[in-house]
Design a protein around this nucleic acid. Structure first.
Lengths: 156, 156
DNA sequence: TTTTTAGTTCTTTATTTGCAGAACCAAAAA
DNA sequence: TTTTTGGTTCTGCAAATAAAGAACTAAAAA
């Protein structure tokens, strides 16, 4: 049984997500769905797999849904939700963090507006940071385009 | 006095940084240095500006140094450190988060290695996520290049 | 109608984090 | 040598976060 390998990878995914600042169970829940076969699990299956309480799982799912990382499907005649990793819209997840960079950029710009021009060297440094953020924000749509393109190519 | 504007912006910078997951004082300390004139401050000036304890400031500085966001300069005949925003190496800050994306990519790849090929559609979704991360990791050095280039152009 | 199921929300407890203030330390000044 | 300065580290304490388990709810099943 490679059940063991699965659990180990789930834990390591948990650690990477911890480093990203996600709540503790979140990463492991993601890992659990990433490795699920079939690629969806009921609430109770998740509870059992993670050895966590229903409340903890419920709240973590709510969090992950809010981040567009998880959603669920249903089957007619079955009341349960089948939760899955929302892989199709993963770019949205990345986009969210890019948007935060955009907010940082704004703050640097506002700082420049408030500062005097008595310390031009430092101000130039701030402008360079703004420039860096601008390049990233500018290039991100191209990343998405290229992604779409390469995916389409694959399907053909 | 636009002291008030400064404090308000510092608070808003604090909020953006909170959203990024930084510890509470960190963002405000960054803001304080971003708006400082001259663009560096002594330990005591920071303590006073933030109305925080020496220990809190000391620990927060340590954290920001570890993130390569802050360092200090000295002046001969003056024992104090003058802390400043480390604008010149800000790309390193961004790079750190890109590296975390790289770790996420690895986890998705490992997941694919463990998964059977019973659910090819889902596996394709995972591959697409890997592809997305790869495009980003691939393009990031170009971002830095472009940044260098545009900066050089500016100096001439 | 009563019971079960699938999950959510509430309550309590434990853990973690963040902070202040005191104690501390090493280098410089007196 | 003693004192001052510029911090750092330690010791609680308060607040925030996370989790478990119980109580709850709405829909479906019996």
């Amino acid at each position: 049984m490679e059940e063991n390998k699965i659990r180990q990878l789930v834990e390591r995914i948990g650690i990477v997500c911890d480093k990203e600042g996600y709540p503790p169970l979140a990463g492991r829940l993601l890992g659990c769905l990433m490795l699920a076969e079939p690629p969806y699990k009921t609430f109770d299956e998740i509870v059992e797999f993670l050895h966590a309480s229903k409340s903890a799982v419920s709240n973590t799912i709510k969090f992950l849904e809010s981040q567009h990382m998880v959603d669920y499907i249903t089957f007619s005649g079955d009341r349960r939700r089948y939760f899955r990793l929302k892989v199709e819209t993963w770019p949205q997840v990345v986009q969210a963090s890019v948007e935060n960079l955009g907010e940082m950029k704004e703050k640097f710009k506002e700082a420049l507006q408030i500062r005097s021009n008595q310390y031009p060297e430092f101000n130039e440094g701030l402008k360079d940071v703004v420039l860096l953020y601008e390049i990233i924000l500018d290039i991100f749509p191209q990343v998405l385009e290229r992604w779409d393109e390469l995916r389409k190519k694959k399907t053909l």
